[in-house]
Simulated scan of single mutants.
Amino acid sequence: MKNKYTYVWVSLVILVFGIIFIPKIIERIKTGTIIEHDRMNQTEADEPLNFIYLNNEKRKVPSFQFLNQDSLLISEKDYEGKVYVVEFFFTTCPTICPVMNSNLVEIQEEFRDFDNFGVASFTINPEYDTPRILKQYAEKYGINDMDWHLMTGNRQAIYDLANIGFNIFAAENQGVPGGFEHSGLFALVDKNGYLRSRTDDFGNPIIYYRGTISESQGENDEGEIQEVSILKEDIKKLLNE
């Protein structure tokens, strides 16, 4: 008889626990409020970001010096101690640039309170994109963070920076809309000027982040997934280093 009553009480305790706590656990999963240190929430995303290597050396942002939208001379030294995102674009781009810069404005707002975060945008059409044009473009898109510089200058220096320095493709091509083509990728740089990224499913650094798809869109017609979300996560990691 004692064992029978013990079984009844154990069953009752389990039933009460399920009624009270299981709905709360489900709700936390739905709303994403599982705290950072929950065992279930610990994933590979908690690992530090990789350095990018070239010839067995960590890739670092090369020296550059260009005028920004306020006609101020900006170099890589202005980004020392800051985590920043790099892009190559042009103001008359009719295709991917508006999406790229809308995504970056969203990132700007998320990290506005961080003095050690910035963006470096280099135009690949410097003959047209003067500081005055870049200023107008900044006002149009709501680019107003003091550490977001839209830069213009010597054409060859910019193309060398893109294609050699960052290995992010950029070229003039009169056969494409706008007359220029580029990859639409973002590079992520740490506080010491090194390129960093997370790894893919095979353990290889992704190197760059896809900037041509918004978080709200999710994926494009080719089935490529947006990477703005993971870029935000990785910016936070570098800010906390």
Rank of each mutant, 00 (worst) to 15 (best):
E215R: 10
G211A: 11
D234E: 13
L73W: 09
F111E: 06
D147Q: 08
P205E: 00
F122M: 13
I133D: 02
D190E: 11
Q42A: 05
M40Y: 07
N56F: 03
S71N: 15
E227N: 11
E57V: 03
A162H: 07
Q156K: 15
T33M: 05
I34R: 05
I124F: 03
Q69N: 13
K82E: 05
I235T: 05
P126N: 10
L161V: 14
L238W: 05
I168W: 00
G81V: 04
E241W: 13
L185C: 01
F186S: 00
I124C: 07
L188E: 08
F88Q: 03
P94E: 01
F114E: 08
S63R: 15
N101G: 02
N50T: 14
N3S: 12
L67G: 03
Q65I: 07
L239F: 04
K232G: 12
F64H: 04
R39H: 11
D46W: 07
I52S: 00
Q226N: 14
I164C: 12
T33G: 06
I206P: 04
R198H: 14
E80T: 08
S229E: 15
Q217V: 01
N220H: 07
T95D: 10
N163L: 06
N125M: 07
E80I: 08
Y208T: 03
S63N: 15
D190W: 05
V10S: 11
I230H: 04
V86G: 09
S214H: 02
I143D: 00
S197F: 01
N101C: 08
I25Y: 11
N55G: 04
V83M: 04
F117T: 05
Q217A: 12
F90D: 06
E241M: 13
L185P: 00
A120P: 10
G178S: 04
E139F: 10
S75T: 15
E87R: 01
I225Q: 09
I133V: 15
E110F: 06
G18I: 14
K4M: 11
L49E: 00
A120R: 08
Q217E: 13
A170Y: 01
L239R: 07
V99T: 15
Y141H: 14
T212L: 02
P98M: 06
